[in-house]
Design a protein around this nucleic acid. Structure first.
Lengths: 234, 234
DNA sequence: CGTCATGTTGAATATCATCAACCACGGTGG
DNA sequence: CCACCGTGGTTGATGATATTCAACATGACG
């Protein structure tokens, strides 16, 4: 199962810091000098759809950057149902949840086949000590996650159809910022996952999407979304 | 207006790093050596109830630690109503929202008279460079904020009375970890604020509290809460 | 071709928000 | 001192909205 709009990726077994910078989209690598001699190379890791990268309570070792593929971060409650906390796609950072307790705080599950860059935390900290720019980028990345959490909690007490529309907008802009089409994309997660993420039942998500489709704002073919009138989405 | 259970605080105009450590409750200062000669001293700042410490879009200069008093972080929407994103009390850190854009992302409002320790971010970073322990503490503090965001988003799609009960539990344990009574405390914020924070209307909050009171689990006198049966709260 | 997982749609129900009346308290000014 | 008013809080009635239960459709996969 492959994303139809997936860029063709070279699949080298390692990424350099330059690659990491580029993926994080925080800076053009050309802005920084002296990288060629950096010995740091980060292993790649492939994960099949449905498998976990890490599980809750597992010892915290590394952060991950998504090279391609899609993931979800979930928390399983005692009565078996899971809550989706966030999704991750190409260029996204995850694993920060592990820092505080030295154990991961969530499960990270691959929604599709994925390739990840593994960044051992200790190694990262060591690199930070010799590189002020990298330090800055770490702070920026972490605080971006903080803001993402804040903006998500704003979805509370907004009506369901609006919430779903916002979700589509967010997805669209994620694709746009990565060079893919923002009008025509795939939702790699199930309706149930979307509902869990938004705090809605899967039926409500389905209904909201159907309503938008019959209003001519979007067109749906299973998980394939086409946004016909972006201005009306808001 | 003063918290009846407020510890008597010396009100020196400055705090040292040792004080900061102690307040953050991340480590006993005795674990660390070589602090006496640290020149860093952080100014205190007093704010009256109802006033803002910083406003959204204001240039990011400093982080703050609450020495005493209570605050709320809010976001005003276009149509005038405000959303409460978090509360802060003694020992809490805030201002991290400003890192990413170099401008604060929320308004911080004093709920009661407050005293804050002002920690200029640049100065903090400089200190971090000469102190690995402090670096670790920064990462821990930031990632604790991340986890707090995660656990808050779990409140979504849980029923209103449960949500209010959870809120009380959280408040109780906050007081407990600071050495105050966890059975007998004051909610410094209005019902409206609680509702906004939990994504409920103020009436629903009031009803939930009343229900718990008439069930004999808690007793309410305006903003003064007494928890009679902690085990039933869950 | 059957089976399973996923998604859609309908009807009934529960939950929460809204509107509104009312109470308690604190402060103000006569 | 007391009448007045405003804010914050409680409680009730009503209606909107989302959940739940259920039936059915569709595509994927062996």
């Amino acid at each position: 199962m492959c994303h139809p709009f997936q860029r063709v990726e070279r699949t080298k077994p390692f990424s350099t810091i330059r690659d990491v910078y580029e993926l994080l989209q925080l800076a053009r690598p050309s802005q920084y000098t002296g990288w060629a001699d950096t010995a740091a190379r980060f292993q790649h890791k492939r994960v099949k759809a449905g498998h976990a990268i890490y599980r809750i309570e597992q010892a915290f070792e590394a952060l991950y950057i998504v090279r391609f593929g899609f993931l979800k971060m979930i928390l399983n409650s005692v009565d078996g149902d899971e809550r989706v906390l966030s999704f991750a796609m190409e260029g996204d950072f995850f694993g920060l949840d592990g820092i505080y307790h030295d154990r991961y705080a969530v499960d990270s599950i691959a929604l599709t086949d994925c390739e990840l860059i593994v960044i051992p935390f200790k190694q990262l900290i060591t690199l930070v000590h010799s590189n002020r720019e990298l330090e800055k980028i770490i702070y920026l990345t972490i605080s971006r996650e903080l803001l993402r959490g804040l903006s998500q909690s704003l979805l509370n007490n907004i009506k369901a159809p609006t919430r779903v529309a916002r979700f589509l907008e967010t997805q669209a802009s994620s694709y746009a910022s990565r060079g893919y089409s923002s009008q025509n994309f795939l939702l790699p997660m199930s309706r149930r996952d979307i509902g869990s993420y938004l705090g809605l039942s899967l039926e409500t998500v389905s209904r909201s999407l159907s309503a938008m489709a019959s209003a001519g704002v979007i067109s749906i073919d299973r998980r394939h979304i086409q946004i016909l009138k972006p201005e009306l989405l808001h």
